[in-house]
């Protein structure tokens, strides 16, 4: 231990045991009522709101010394947010970390679901900015809670109707609302709608933490998650007309990367681990070099 003499060290995983118990109780309730937003006493964390304080608290409450943690931000393991959260848990929980999806027991994510299929026993922890899918349609929390309680979700379709009326198709591309287990309408956090189908009947446990909003919700393994749509305008995911420039993948979510100031650009997998693994396996895209 490298603690300086006289200065108290933090508890395992930063939060005190009472707080972790409180959060675990909220998580258990959330799992018992899939898609329902459980209020919890969100703590101050050593990072600002909006940097994933909800996800960090959920991870802190469930992580154990044997876990292997992966943290991604927009699919990448090497961005500031992902690097600092990973470093945070290395320091306060002394856990093993990884960038490989299949090796991780807990994956904390901001705005993506990994491309590699998740398996039983894995936990996906989402960082959620605004947990209430009805917020922008009905600003009163008293009213939205009532609407959830009474399953009054007509308003959700009003939003989709407006999308079609204005754009000819459902133009919502991220934070696309879903209905969980045929009951609660849920905001899947700002993941691209490309990722929505991965939530449906996923073998992994999916936990959602909103620190500023003080809400936790969950999708238990193998639970139906249905994206809302109209019969004559069914839900579809984004398609890319080019493969990943580095690994040649045609079935992953791509980010646009600007290469120079003369309009040069390329599209690459947003999931860096997925892309690297493919390149290691010998796949090469139009701009890629063999690994």
């Amino acid at each position: 231990m490298s603690a300086i003499e006289g200065i108290a060290r933090t508890n395992f995983a930063y939060l005190d045991e009472q707080t972790k118990r409180m959060i675990r109780r909220a998580i258990l309730k959330a799992i018992a009522i899939p898609g329902y937003q459980v209020p919890f006493a969100s703590r101050e964390m050593p990072m600002p709101y909006g940097w994933g304080t909800g996800g960090v608290q959920v991870t802190a409450a469930i992580i154990g010394p044997e876990d292997r943690l992966k943290v991604i931000d927009q699919g990448a393991d090497d961005t500031t947010n992902a690097v600092s959260i990973r470093a945070f848990f290395e320091k306060v929980a002394n856990v093993a970390v990884t960038t490989h999806t299949r090796d991780a027991t807990i994956i904390q994510t901001r705005h993506r679901i990994p491309e590699a299929p998740l398996s039983e026993g894995q936990v996906l922890v989402y960082q959620v900015p605004i947990p209430e899918p009805l917020r922008f349609l009905e600003p009163r929390e008293t009213e939205t809670r009532m609407m959830h309680a009474l399953e009054e979700y007509g308003l959700m379709h009003v939003k989709l109707y407006e999308d079609i009326a204005r754009n000819g198709h459902i133009a919502t591309t991220y934070a696309y609302p879903v209905q969980v287990a045929g009951r609660y309408v849920m905001d899947p956090s700002p993941i691209p709608k490309f990722d929505n189908p991965k939530m449906d009947r996923s073998p992994a446990l999916q936990l959602f933490g909103a620190g500023r909003e003080k809400r936790i919700y969950a999708v238990p393994p193998f639970t139906e998650v249905k994206s809302l749509d109209f019969e004559d305008h069914p839900f579809t995911i984004q398609r890319f007309d080019k493969p990943c420039a580095l690994c040649g993948s045609t079935h992953s979510y791509l980010d646009e990367v600007v290469l120079d100031d003369r309009g040069g650009r390329m599209f690459v997998c947003s999931d860096t681990d997925f892309c690297e693994e493919r390149r290691e396996a010998g796949h090469v895209g139009p701009l890629g070099v063999p690994a």
Partner: peptide, 23 residues
């Protein structure tokens, strides 16, 4: 929200899920 959605809201609230018919 549009006039069409204002009229259609009650239909959607009772389960109408066909955009063309609602419109």
């Amino acid at each position: 929200v549009s006039a069409g959605a204002n009229v259609g809201e009650r239909l959607m609230a009772v389960g109408a899920r066909h955009y063309g018919h609602i419109r």
